[in-house]
Design a protein around this nucleic acid. Structure first.
Lengths: 143, 143
DNA sequence: CTTGAAAAGACTAAAAT
DNA sequence: ATTTTAGTCTTTTCAAG
């Protein structure tokens, strides 16, 4: 993992459709060498997968919210329950004012209410606190 | 934007390296038709870009935290200031216990402290409250 | 909008340095 | 680990249904 690997990762984050020839030229290597480095980055799991970034609003997901979840018991097994709610994009165990933090996307406030009901039914959940996003300044990939 | 478009988006989210022939077969179209639909989804901005998903920990970003930012004044101009901090991955204006919510990734707790200092120096910021992530259950792409 | 085919270009693997 | 080369597959374009 050297500077060239980091450059390749940065270039692929910006545009993963570019050719290995272009990548190689940008970092000063042949296309074969660039390809080999990217292959190894994938193999080692540094690059998890190639994917597309989607405009969620265009897909009918207009509301973003963060949900702080309080849980009396351990909640170690709540991961599957939360993963079973399709609108939950992220779930983190946190240190602070609650046990778990969720990122949720729904079509509207009404659907958010439905999600909160389902979160409440997950084992160990004793309460929720919801933070609604009014405007997103940015959601970006780190350099 | 019909069911086939939604299927194509789902397939590309899982693996954007697959061929248009494979995509077409999966949705019951020729490779040319699949290609044309994806081209239009890009053109309309539904697909923002093709990118890679990176293991942040493998890149030395071991700590994830959410930072609630309090701001006395409007903070409408704070977006650029926050965008100037490279460790800030997301910034949202929220309705709730604070003005802005940040997602931050750093190498360690020490670097997180540095970021908090820089957040504090952004125009309009009067206070912060930090939630540290202990474990991430999942961070996924919505279907 | 979809199909099918043709040309250009990219990927993959292998041999040599 | 990188370069180069050759073969194969894919992307991209375009004419026609």
């Amino acid at each position: 993992m050297d500077d060239i690997d980091r450059m390749l990762i940065g270039l692929l984050q910006e545009d993963a459709t570019q050719s290995y020839a272009a990548l190689g030229q940008a970092v000063g290597l042949s296309s074969g060498a660039a390809h080999e480095r990217v292959r190894k980055l994938r193999e080692r799991g540094v690059i998890r997968r190639t994917t597309i970034e989607v405009d969620q609003a265009a897909l009918g997901r207009a509301v973003t919210a963060y949900v702080l979840v309080d849980g009396g018991s351990w909640m170690g097994d709540s991961a599957e329950g939360l993963a079973g709610i399709p609108e939950v994009e992220e779930a983190h165990v946190i240190a602070g004012p609650a046990s778990v933090l969720l990122k949720v996307r729904t079509a509207g406030p009404r659907e958010l209410q439905d999600v909160l009901r389902r979160v409440f039914q997950v084992d160990g959940v004793t309460g929720t606190q919801t933070v609604i996003v009014l405007e997103t300044f940015f959601e970006r990939t780190l350099k």
